[in-house]
Simulated assay, not measured.
Amino acid sequence: MRILDVEVTCRNILLERPFKTALRTATEIDSIEVTIHLENGVVGMGSAAPTWVITGDSTESIQAALLGPIKKILLNQHMDNFQSLLMDIQTSCVGNTSAKAAADIAMYDAYSKLLGIPLYRYLGNHKHLKTCMTIGVDTPEIMSKNAIKNVDSGFKSLKVKVGSAPELDMARVSAIRAVIPPDVTLRLDANQGWTPKQAVQLINQMERENLNIEFIEQPVAAHDLEGLKFVTNNVNIPIMADESLFSPHDALKLVSGKYIDLLNIKLMKCGGISNALKIASIAETAGVHCMIGSMMESDQSVAAAAHFAVAHPNVRYFDLDAPLWLKEQPEFMKYVGEDITLSTQPGISKV
């Protein structure tokens, strides 16, 4: 079954409310969508969203990579060579992980549709999904109010953004913990906002005050692996790599060097499902559990991440709330409070 065409379109999606982290404030996103057409009429769909401050990818660079080197290596190729084509996507150009992710997702969608099964069945497993909800960085008062609102909406796990003002972070987390039930889990994401010494000081204080933090994401700069290891070795709360992890090679270095306790996999960072599977398996061999995360992106690509997450046994944590921040209603996944349901139709289909 040959690939006849690769189409790329772009649309703008507004957010319900600003999404604030230590790295950026977003009020809208561009969704770059790729459609792969097979000669029997089957289409595979994927999408990507640019995140300058993390991946370095822009709307223009994603479109250029998809319509240039990626389209060139896919056109007129046979889907019988599915795995080889996935590798060709990754080697088609340097960087451009978001464009590669969109094409990779579209290929997985098309292939599982050819087989007539949902993507998670092709990948070989299925488990129940419960996502956390993100509390954007703000004043302690606003963040605690948002925490109450989300707990009342059915979320038992909150991901709290910190790091934009380290001197305020203790107040932020303490304010949230004071107003939510003790059985609600808190996860922190510093988005590289602390120095190693700041991180250790803050985390040790959180431990002394029994704030009950499940884990902390990327406390220090992505490139500072020795700083990351210093934090990991000097606190009790598990430390998770996010921006330090882009590739299977990064995963191998992080787990073999014991720089972290946990890994956060995002399709836009690693280039899609094929590399996400490799990262999760590398981590599994080292006894390191993974979380599936997402950028601020459309529900189509988040649903692809969800299909991967329910299928790989080493993905133990789920951060897939991005579609709930968008003004448009999710179509590829259904949310009821923290519970996520995926379609039972072939591929990555609408629910």
Rank of each mutant, 00 (worst) to 15 (best):
R11E: 07
R11W: 03
N12Y: 11
I13A: 09
L14N: 08
L14R: 01
L15K: 06
L15V: 02
E16S: 14
R17E: 10
P18A: 10
P18H: 09
P18Y: 05
F19S: 09
A22R: 04
A22Y: 02
A22E: 04
L23C: 05
R24Q: 10
A26K: 14
A26L: 14
T27D: 02
T27P: 00
E28Y: 08
I29S: 09
D30S: 12
S31F: 08
E33L: 11
E33R: 11
I36R: 00
I36T: 05
H37L: 09
L38Y: 09
L38P: 00
E39T: 08
E39Q: 09
E39W: 02
G41T: 15
V42C: 08
V42I: 15
V43P: 00
G44C: 10
G44V: 08
G44M: 12
M45P: 01
M45H: 12
M45D: 05
G46R: 10
S47E: 13
S47N: 09
S47D: 14
A48F: 01
A48W: 01
P50C: 01
P50K: 04
T51P: 00
V53Q: 04
T55E: 05
G56N: 10
D57C: 08
T59S: 01
T59E: 12
E60G: 00
S61A: 02
I62F: 05
I62R: 08
A64C: 06
A65M: 11
L66T: 15
I70D: 02
K71Y: 11
K71R: 15
K71H: 10
K72N: 10
I73F: 06
I73W: 04
I73G: 08
L74K: 15
L74E: 10
L74P: 03
Q77M: 07
M79F: 07
D80S: 14
D80A: 15
L85C: 02
M87F: 00
I89T: 01
I89W: 07
I89P: 00
Q90N: 13
T91H: 04
G95A: 07
N96D: 06
T97P: 15
T97D: 12
S98R: 03
S98C: 14
S98G: 11
A99L: 09
A99V: 11
A101D: 01
A103T: 00
D104P: 15
A106K: 13
Y108W: 12
D109P: 00
D109V: 00
D109H: 11
A110Y: 11
A110H: 10
Y111C: 05
Y111F: 15
Y111A: 04
Y111I: 03
S112T: 00
L114G: 04
L115N: 08
L115P: 05
G116W: 14
G116R: 10
G116L: 13
P118V: 07
P118M: 06
Y120E: 02
Y120F: 15
Y120R: 05
Y122H: 13
Y122M: 13
G124E: 02
N125Q: 08
N125I: 00
H126T: 10
K127I: 11
H128I: 00
L129H: 07
K130H: 13
K130N: 06
K130Y: 12
T131E: 08
C132R: 08
C132D: 15
M133E: 07
M133R: 13
M133K: 13
I135C: 03
G136S: 08
D138F: 03
